[in-house]
Structure formats: C-alpha cells, structure tokens
Amino acid sequence: MYGIRPELLDEFPEQYYCLEDYEKVAAKWCPGCGDHAVLGNIQKLCRDEQLNPAKTVFVSGIGCSSRFPHYMKTYGFHGLHGRAFPVASGIKWRRPDLNVFVITGDGDCCSIGAGAWIHAIRYNIDMTVMLFNNEIYGLTKNQTSPTSRIGTVSSTTPLGSVLPPIHPIQTTLGVSNVSFVAQTVDWNPPHLYATLKAAYKHKGFSFIHILQRCPKFQSGLVDQYTGNKENLYLLTGNDGVELSDSMKASFKNKVEHNANDIYAARTLAEQPDRIYLGVFYRNPEARRYDEYGASNLGFTVDQKISALNKELDKFAV
C-alpha cells in the first residue's frame, strides 16, 4: 500500500481490462491490409472505455473485414453476407446492456446488404458501425465492387468498370432519421482512433466510413491515398472528434463544418473527389428504435399469464 491512500481504494475498479483482454488470436489478413489498423484501434478503444468483454458483441457479415469478430475476445457474430445489420439490430433491440459494433465491407454493405443498410440507418439503433471500404471484393479475389471507381480493372471488369460508384456517405446522409456519419482513413491511426471514439460515444446508429487500403487488389490506390495529402481535408468544428493540436496541424487543408447541419453535410458529400475526414453529421435527437425495443422489458411470468388470460377472455365462449 506504499504511496496509496487507503481511503481511496474503494474507487478502484473491481476489474481493470487490459488490451490482452480483447485480443484473441493473430489476425490472418494480408500484410499491409488496412484492417489491422482498425482492429488495433478498436481494441485500444475497448480498453480505454473499459468495455466489459462479456457485454460487448462484434457483428459482421461476410468478406475480408468481416473476419474481425474472430480476432476479438468478446462475444461475436460472424453471420451471412450482407446481413450484419438485421442481426445486430435483433441483438441490441431488447438488450440495452450490450455494446454492439458492426463490421461490414463495401460489398457486404453497399451491394448485397444495401436494403438492410438503408433500413438500419432509419432504425437508428445504438451501435457503432464501421464500413471498411477498399473499393474491391477481396475474399472472392478481385471483383469490382459498387464503390469501385469507373475504369477499375478487375476479374469481372478486365476492360475497366463502367458504372459510377456509390458514395456511402452521400447515401447514408440521404436516409431519414440518420444520426451519425463520419469518415476516416486506416492509415492515420490518431484520426481513426478519435473518430471511432466519437462514434462510440454517440448514442444511435454511428456510421463510420473507413477508406481502406487493399495492397493485394487495389495496390494502385494505396499510394494515391497515402501519398497525396492535397485532397485530404480535415473537418473541424463541433464534431466531438478529439484530436491533438499537433495532429490538427499535420493537415494541410482544414474546413470548418457545422456537424448539426445536414444540408452542409450533404454538400460536402457531393464532392467525392475530396476526402473530408471527420464527422459530417450528427443528431443525438434522432428517434432510436432500440429505446422502443427496451420499453417493456422484464415482465414476470405471472404478469404474462394474466395478460394471456385477459386476452383469452375476449375470445371466450
């Protein structure tokens, strides 16, 4: 007890979770894949927020990034392609005590799961959603994704893709009841971490679009991303992203943005050539479907029996 005042001991947490409490096995992603950086920063966030691993669930679909839950020493649900949102929604709806994270990729979210994505935004159930967008299908080996740029050469478009990409931020901001939309990049860990944290702190469907490198199938984009600071713009303002001054100073371009202004957010999202980092929009007042889901928990069996009998009376002969 040397150096510790005994009367303060009560304030020590019963259990303190270390990084190892969230680390399961070494990830099997390719070397240089952006997924590694997100995994490390999520584990750090869990530690910093002292999330109880038993009360934390990582839900994913199918794809490279969707292996994520297997690398976390928490509860996890590695489900079906495109279906992470309905599963995560079902988990959280009547379990307000759980911390729910969703991991999805550009194929998983913006292609096969697009319908569920739109409705998940509208449900606005409290969960932290990370869209890993590397603009390519990796696990099935190099097919064009709906977020691939025009001209992307892949196994399915050897002459270059012909359709313009979906811009996930733009799409998300177009859905009613949207409550939190942010963008970050895997190769800037401080910004990635600060954005994850702001998203986690937001109560509602916190959507983070993570631009991410795929050195295997999108190697051409890696240098374009990391080497070019010209089209990176840091959003500053009331967005809840806590960055150090030196971090802020490292950005050449900064844009003052009001994250409560959806029209301003949509205007930014209409400029896909510029990469804005930070929170586009947040609305803590948006209606949350999980609050409805948790509105009548904990009925006893006796209460249920009397409700059943009351209803049966109406059908009695």
Binding site: R83, G90, K92, W93, R94, Q303
Partner: peptide
C-alpha cells in the same frame, strides 16, 4: 406490448429472420 413482447416489422423477409436470429443469439 401488454405481455412483455414486441413485434418488429422488418424491411423484408430476410431481415425479419435475421433480426429474429440476432434476438435469439442475445
């Protein structure tokens, strides 16, 4: 709602069972 339950009308049949499966997992 008076007997401690709720209906979720999902966006489609797939999401309806996906949501149920999430609820089962929880």
């Amino acid at each position: 709602h008076e007997s401690g339950g709720l209906i979720h009308q999902a966006e489609d049949e797939i999401a309806a069972i996906g949501f149920a499966i999430g609820s089962s997992y929880a």
